[in-house]
Design a protein around this nucleic acid. Structure first.
Lengths: 344, 344
DNA sequence: CTGTTAGCGCCTTCAT
DNA sequence: ATGAAGGCGCTAACAG
């Protein structure tokens, strides 16, 4: 089998406890033996079995991540932040996806519980339903998730405010007929964005936006299809389009480009999330920048506080977002580093 | 603490051995007891501790993934395939990144070894250096990795052939001054692509391509910068540009668009990887499609064969790639589903 | 300071 | 068919 602590002990001529003590630096040990142990460890290439450790109720050295999907820039930015923070804390990342499905979510959480020290959860589809959350509410950090009770650790960003600001920007630019392509109905973040859009419209006296609302999804395909059907509908055609997220907006751009609709001349387009591909669309995409990598890093940090028995009082943090104006809404800015003119 | 097998045994009025037998279906058990055990399990919400299991040398139920980065579409497509396959086999995914660094790579492999049943490794920077690979060569599947010895399980795709084909397509279209923006020098996949480019050029009598080769990276930024300096250089300006990957090509597109260079009129551009954002660039991007999600799924499948002690003979698979012609090389095709005209 | 002992949760002989 | 006992690798408590 593998090399165990006993092999090390034998080679160093000490007991296994001494080896353990040296490795965990838990009691003072004679300097000579300490060296012999270290040498033996080095020579044998020993490293303690994590399974045995965690069996003793120690840390597993892994943290879990449950999110809806992995295959989108929004999520991989998040993963990048998580990965970096995890790595620099010598933690492994165990990843599982829910596909926005309640049953998959529950199963993933349950199965993870015993093999990690804590879990970071992104589940915008939970919709305040705290019942889905395992009773061991400690050692959980929620991201972009809306829970009804305030007793959880949550790191959210301002979906409502971002949508509000970007819609307001369009209104201030003179647009009035502003359509929206909505994200998945079961996702709370998408609904917050819709709320933000409506609130901004209402501020300008447009209280009934139902004629402007089109159902979509967080995908390019959905944005493409929704925009096409929007273009085929009866006039008046809207002059601006707020999209569920950047992918959705990219699909919209494509539909508009294909239809020969000038952007932003005939139709301004705005996205949400601020993924970096948004700089490379034609025209470049105005969006709401959400710093998912930083949020990922922060989530790990917060989780470690919980694990280390530091500050245990549940905390709700809200990370600010920023409207980034680019060419798709008529604020063309040349140059590579440009487009980062930031508001809000 | 948590619920253990003893709690179940007590509640069912049997011994722990019986519970174990019922759960693992290892010996026949009296039907009445079996039911009582199952009821107790259900009622208590018991599930065996994975740490205790793996301490006994059983499966851990997790597989490791080591890759250079997580934050790029190429990798997240891969992760999508891995995740799906893992989930449908009730496996957890433990992820770690090497950042193309030998030391990080070694550390990740080492630390993972004991906590997973097998590891899927993508390490194009290994460069045939099999010494970096832990001795326990079984239960390892390499993806997009070039090892010197043939005794490993490898799933590669044809970096050379893809670059060869796409360069050849440009040559057949009449281009002769075809530049290349090269990927990271230490990454073997990037070097294979360069080789493919050179081989195609040589077939058309262009043996010295050194004047056409520009150092780049697998990033938009690098593509942007390399293209800018290429545009500023002395004439003659190349008429086509083969890029290290799609991100790099997206940066090139941006530089060209900003400089007012017509694409593909004055400069044709080709990428590599076939990430889906390539459909949304302006113009849409000709590329070599690599089915990373399918490759991820296949890697899990192969790893499971190894774990299950199925076919243990090392196997090298090569997944075919396909040139996808889009607008950036002058084969403009309208419509959403188009652009999938596939060659090779 | 150090070695011996016991036990984490589970599975697998070994008896019965 | 079933229960009791032992041990996987490790650490904490207990003696010395």
């Amino acid at each position: 089998m593998s090399i165990t602590i006993r092999d090390v002990a034998r080679r160093a001529g000490v007991s296994t406890s001494t080896v353990s003590r040296v490795l965990n630096d838990t009691c003072p040990v004679d300097e000579g033996k300490r060296r012999r142990v270290l040498d033996a460890v080095e020579h044998l290439g020993y490293s303690p079995d994590p399974a045995a450790r965690s069996l003793l109720g120690k840390r597993t050295g892994a943290i879990g991540v449950v999110l809806p999907f992995v295959g989108a820039e929004f999520f991989s930015d998040f993963l990048t932040g998580l990965d970096e923070a995890a790595q620099s804390n010598n933690l492994f990342l165990i990843i599982s996806t829910s596909h926005r499905d309640a049953e998959e979510f529950r199963a993933a959480m349950h199965a993870m519980e015993k093999r990690v020290d804590g879990i970071i959860v992104m589940a915008p589809e939970l919709n305040g339903n705290a019942r889905m959350v395992p009773r061991s509410g400690r050692r959980l950090v929620f991201v972009n998730t809306y829970l009804r009770e305030g007793s959880y650790n949550v790191i959210n960003f301002d979906n409502f405010g971002g949508a509000f600001e970007i819609t307001k920007h369009l209104l201030e630019s003179g647009h009035r007929d502003i359509a929206i392509i909505k994200g998945p109905a079961e996702a709370r973040d998408a609904r917050e964005r819709i709320r933000g859009y409506r609130a901004a419209m209402a501020e300008y006296g447009i209280d009934d936006t139902s004629g402007f609302e089109h159902q979509g999804e967080y995908t390019q395909e959905a944005g493409y299809l929704a925009t096409r059907s929007l273009l085929m509908a009866d006039p008046p055609r809207p002059t601006a389009l707020v999209c569920a997220n950047d992918y959705c907006a990219m699909g919209a751009l494509r539909a508009l480009n294909e239809a020969g609709v000038a952007i932003p001349g005939e139709m301004a387009v705005a996205g949400f999330d601020g993924i970096s591909s948004g700089q490379y669309t034609q025209p470049s995409l105005t969006s709401v920048k959400v710093p998912m990598d930083a949020i990922g890093a922060r989530a790990v940090e917060r989780l470690l506080e919980l694990i280390d028995d530091g500050d245990q009082t549940p905390r709700q943090e809200v990370v600010p977002v920023a409207v980034v104006l680019r060419a798709s809404t008529g604020t063309a800015i040349p140059g590579p580093r440009a487009g980062s003119r930031v508001r809000a």
